[in-house]
């Protein structure tokens, strides 16, 4: 057995506030809560690019190779794994985050281009214990199963409602020439606008119901229908619990 183990670099994550000196080929990686010095206009591949941005209201300054995507930076370096890697090629929407209020795909965004950006991920939506209404609606309407596409779906759904509020149209809008004003979305409008977020478990009808509820502000019940008489009680002893 021939195994050649070589160590050119080590990739330890430096914790808050530490600055690591770069030596030769070594890569500098840091997460600092402090303000970064002026970011270099250009940097060589070995030195990495310094980027300062806000994620969920927290300031981050990172120095990473320019080929690191925002998605990988969030998941592998910042420690926010809520944004998901489903395809890494812009074909599924699982990595959707809000950048400066608009939905974008973090897998096709280089971190290097995010200088000064304000990024909101799924982890930044709830206020303490209070869920964002869209999160609550997804739970109520069971708008997910495995949960893997869910952060992207929810970020996207929030943006869809903003876009509708701004009067943006879609491919299924009958009259795109109308004056831009806040639009009420039909179910097909919601479906079209959410079509960039794939859910392989197939929760789409429930996702539409959740978005519709938040959009209209009207609580909706789900109807649960059984064909015949249902038999749910398993234990005689439980009869009294209904009393």
């Amino acid at each position: 057995m021939r195994i050649r183990l070589r160590r050119r670099r080590f990739g330890q994550l430096l914790i808050v506030g530490t600055v690591m000196t770069t030596v030769g080929n070594w890569m500098k990686r840091s997460i600092a809560q402090t303000s970064s010095p002026a970011s270099p206009i250009s940097s060589s591949q070995s030195n990495g690019v310094n980027v300062a941005l806000s994620v969920n209201g927290t300031f981050h300054s990172l120095t990473l190779e320019p080929r690191v995507t925002l998605l990988d930076a969030l998941r592998e370096h910042i420690g926010l794994t809520g944004s998901k890697k489903g395809c890494d090629h812009g074909q599924c929407g699982a990595c959707t985050v809000l950048m400066d209020g608009r939905r974008v795909l973090s897998c096709l965004t280089l971190l290097a281009t995010c200088e000064g950006s304000d990024v909101t991920t799924i982890e930044g939506l709830a206020q303490g214990d209070d869920l964002h209404p869209m999160q609550a609606a997804f739970i109520k309407h069971d708008g997910f199963q495995c949960g893997y596409c869910t952060p992207g779906q929810i970020c996207s759904a929030i943006a869809v409602l903003n876009e509708a509020h701004n009067g943006e149209v879609s491919y299924v809008t009958t009259d795109v020439r109308q004056e831009p004003r806040s639009v009420q979305l039909s179910d097909d409008e919601i479906r079209e606008r959410m079509s960039g977020n794939i859910c392989r478990c197939g929760a789409y009808p429930n996702i539409v119901a959740a978005i519709r509820e938040v959009h209209t502000g009207e609580a909706e019940a789900q109807s649960w229908q059984f064909a015949g008489e249902t038999e749910t009680a398993m234990f005689d002893a439980l009869e009294m619990r209904t009393e």
Binding site: T96, R103, L108, E163, V176, R177
Partner: peptide
């Protein structure tokens, strides 16, 4: 664009997804 070139609006919106069109 919407008023005078609705064809362009429709064509753009027929492509990709909301996220990609934002980028």
């Amino acid at each position: 664009v919407r008023q005078n070139y609705p064809l362009l609006t429709q064509a753009i919106l027929a492509g990709a997804s909301g996220q990609i069109r934002n980028m």
